[in-house]
Computed example of a mutant assay.
Amino acid sequence: MQPAHDDAIRVAVSTVIFSLRSGDDGDVLTIPLVRRTREPHRGQWAVPGGWLATDEDLRDAASRTLAETTGLSPSWLEQLYTFGEIDRSPGRVVSIVYWALLRSDLVEAQRSAAGAPENVEWFAVDDLPDLAFDHRLLVDYAIWRLRNKVGYSRIAAGLLPDEFTLAELRAVYETVLGRRLDPSNFRRLIEGSEALVPTDAFRTGAHRPARLFRWDAEVELADRGPVGHG
């Protein structure tokens, strides 16, 4: 069998971007989707993305296509996987998929500044519409990767402001993992990490003041075991 010509294969770059949004029962893990305006799958929702230009790197393409389709610029971006099944799209299309995080306090500011496209909406990951192509597979894989990685690294920082309380940090982990964590065990594990740096500032409110923390960008939570396990 003769190999296909290079010009018969197109390369797309897509990004599954996560953020937290306030819901009736607390924060909800959400992603933005784009309603397609042309065939195939016109009118269906899809993961933001676009074609790779011949003169750009993959990461640059991920940032560009995300900004063009949603008006968003993530605070954390990582390559996820390559999807290239033969029948996943009309024609031969290979998709390089990234996953990204964006702080909830920056979402609306970025969308307002960029003039958010009308065909973009945010959806809870547990309540997604039917998606075009094989994009549900892309999203499910990204969710799985996020939930597996969040317990081992400072990835939650991509969903938080620069400074935060331990309760706010625990809430992020609980939202991503989809389950409650024991507060005492969580505090003991996190406070013992060199990645978490206490500040001199406190958040005041109805309860006693809570110390604010920040992440040390040079340190990971490596070798301490996954949060929420054991």
Rank of each mutant, 00 (worst) to 15 (best):
P129W: 00
R111F: 11
D6M: 12
S14K: 05
V172A: 07
T54P: 14
L77S: 13
I155T: 04
S184M: 09
M1G: 15
D127W: 01
E194W: 12
A157Q: 06
A12M: 11
N148W: 05
T82S: 12
R187E: 15
R36L: 13
E118T: 08
L160E: 07
N148E: 09
F83C: 03
I31N: 02
S104I: 01
P129Y: 00
D130A: 03
L146D: 00
V197S: 10
W122V: 02
W215E: 02
G115R: 09
L33M: 05
V16H: 02
P40H: 01
D200I: 10
R136Y: 04
S184T: 08
G151N: 04
P48H: 03
E194T: 10
D182I: 05
D140Q: 04
S73W: 04
S95H: 03
R180V: 11
P32Y: 06
E163K: 06
A8R: 08
A217I: 13
P161K: 06
S95P: 04
G91P: 03
A100G: 14
A12E: 13
Q44W: 02
I96N: 10
W144I: 08
T82A: 15
A4W: 08
L72G: 07
R21Y: 11
A206I: 13
V227K: 07
L221C: 12
V28A: 10
L29F: 08
R21Q: 15
T82W: 07
D216F: 12
I155D: 00
T30E: 13
V28L: 12
D27L: 11
R136Q: 12
N185S: 15
P32Q: 03
R145Y: 02
S19K: 01
W122N: 03
W215F: 15
P74N: 04
P74E: 04
Y81D: 13
G50L: 02
P3Q: 10
R111T: 13
R188S: 12
E174W: 03
E85H: 14
D105C: 06
P161Q: 10
T65I: 10
K149A: 12
E191C: 13
R103F: 12
D182C: 06
S112W: 06
D87Q: 11
R211G: 11
A167L: 09
V97K: 01
L189M: 07
L20F: 07
V176Y: 03
A53E: 15
W144P: 04
L106E: 15
L181T: 04
R64W: 09
E78W: 13
Q110A: 05
G115P: 12
G151Y: 03
A109M: 09
D200T: 15
W51Q: 09
F213Y: 15
V11I: 15
V97N: 07
G178P: 05
